[in-house]
Design a protein around this nucleic acid. Sequence first.
DNA 1: ATGAAAGCGCTAACAG
DNA 2: CTGTTAGCGCTTTCAT
Lengths: 337, 337
Amino acid sequence: MVGIEEVAAAAGVSTATVSRAIRGLPRVSPKTRAKILATAKELGYVPSSAASRLATGKTRTIGVLAPYVDRWFFGKAIAGVDQELHGRGYNLSLFNLGGRTAPRERLFSRSMVHKQIDALLLLCMFLHPEEIDDLHAIDIPLVVVGGPVPGCPNVGIDDYLAARSITEHLIDLGHRHIALLHGQDDSDLNFSVPKIRVEGFHDAVHAAGLELHPDASLFGNFTVQSGVEAMRRFMDLPEPRPTAVVCASDEMALGVLFEAARQGVRVPQDLSVVGIDGHEMGECAGLTTVWQDPTAQARRGTQMLMGELGGDSGAVRSELAEQRLIVRETTAPPRVA
Amino acid sequence: MVGIEEVAAAAGVSTATVSRAIRGLPRVSPKTRAKILATAKELGYVPSSAASRLATGKTRTIGVLAPYVDRWFFGKAIAGVDQELHGRGYNLSLFNLGGRTAPRERLFSRSMVHKQIDALLLLCMFLHPEEIDDLHAIDIPLVVVGGPVPGCPNVGIDDYLAARSITEHLIDLGHRHIALLHGQDDSDLNFSVPKIRVEGFHDAVHAAGLELHPDASLFGNFTVQSGVEAMRRFMDLPEPRPTAVVCASDEMALGVLFEAARQGVRVPQDLSVVGIDGHEMGECAGLTTVWQDPTAQARRGTQMLMGELGGDSGAVRSELAEQRLIVRETTAPPRVA
DNA sequence: ATGAAAGCGCTAACAG
DNA sequence: CTGTTAGCGCTTTCAT
């Protein structure tokens, strides 16, 4: 394993100069730099990141804490972080909570995260107050992408507005009896996003002077499968059934769509269905939704972190992300009774 | 930032003893160990991973190289690696190629990967021969999960068998005119999996004495959207059209299903559709497929790497993963003409 | 069972 | 522009 010393010797300079040359710092004559770079390449020299970390105190690694990696929002977001990081020579360290709940012994706030990363990007999840404190105590730049976490700057859409506008779209179409497929996560992770979306829905309904049928409330856990199951329960409701259902996520809406097809319920003639998220598959299914771009959000969050690390304190701040109502083929006026 | 020295001082022992105690090494009296652990916790001591890495040469980090993170197979696999890693105190460093092709200046084989990780898990992707050489030159345990990479041990399903058996299922049902939706990736990443699946299809067709209609060959890039587009082209084919279509992935099959519904083509009465993968959404859609479990595969691969790092040389070896034909609702005998 | 001390490989003043 | 020289914080013989 060739080290900086050997390069220095071979190039006939000191290790300090090699260090400067390799890292592109000033105070090295073009000529010397060229020579050093050449010998370094020749010798196949690669700096030891461990040594460099120890000496500088910087890890050039940013951590991403996510509850899941195999779900739409999170996968897209992680991709965004990565896009922003590579090229800047930063590494991405992934900490997945895997929906774990009890057994997450606050580990991430101590050994996991501590001293291993320069900054942390949290993908929307609920944290206990103590956990938030831990995070702040670590004193590294922190930003959350996706859902609001009390006391932390975040970039994401206005979930209340999203839910409200998609519901109003239905109301404008003439729907008066609307069901809601809540997205309550399995775990007690207790995202705040689901709750906020439900509020937007409720407010839209009430503002329109409509009432909420008690049994027009279905529950899912954000997965497609739970959408399928919810649709089955929907079909068990006594007639007259709601003429539309707003789903707290596109994934659940897709499940509803699949089961509707299986049961012979025509969409949108018999039932209007809407989601929230802008999942690619929703586009293929013609799903009306409120679109958002998790990748862009994560990139933005990452840029803020990089800015902060670059000395621009104040670079990290809450910011609203782009969202847009997209009307496609799953919504139509209700059939006249 | 409290270091080992302060803990040693506070506990009235040497740093060497603290080091042993903290890491659970022998040669420390239970009593001293207890005391050290106590003061360490009290002081909020967290070892500097950088210093430890430098001293030991081990990073306790394994790298995952993936072409995408926001696609089904990859997301599932990354989750699997993570599950296996945490708890063992290992970190996961994600290197995403983001479908990049030319601009991937072999970077990953040098600075990126080098000296930053103890082992590498490759998620099925094509690599140029030189890149493979680079990888091996680094001399750290390596395993690929998903698709065969020449010269590297891998865990994954038998893609040839998968494609062949799903095709034979159709033939057994009585189909004689079968279309294939190839999965050719956009990039020139040139996965080998697509090719292998195509071979399985071809062989099954030929073995049954059937002929391949030249225009029964559609192309997609593994995305749902490409499945939608392929289905549109399918509808443009002159009659009589194939009575079944085998898709190289469930995601494309789903796209076909969506578009079929839109065009009023009934599945499976008018057209049988099959995929490969076992995507959850396929289950919801009733898609007949060959199921596989990327998470389990990645866990297995990770276990091998850990074994190798644990001194069990030979722990990493090629291994076939579980797969299973699952017949659901998208396949049926062809309509009698 | 415990301590002393020599590194691990690089960076960062400070000189020159 | 370049070299000298302390560390960075932990691990690891080798003594004791």
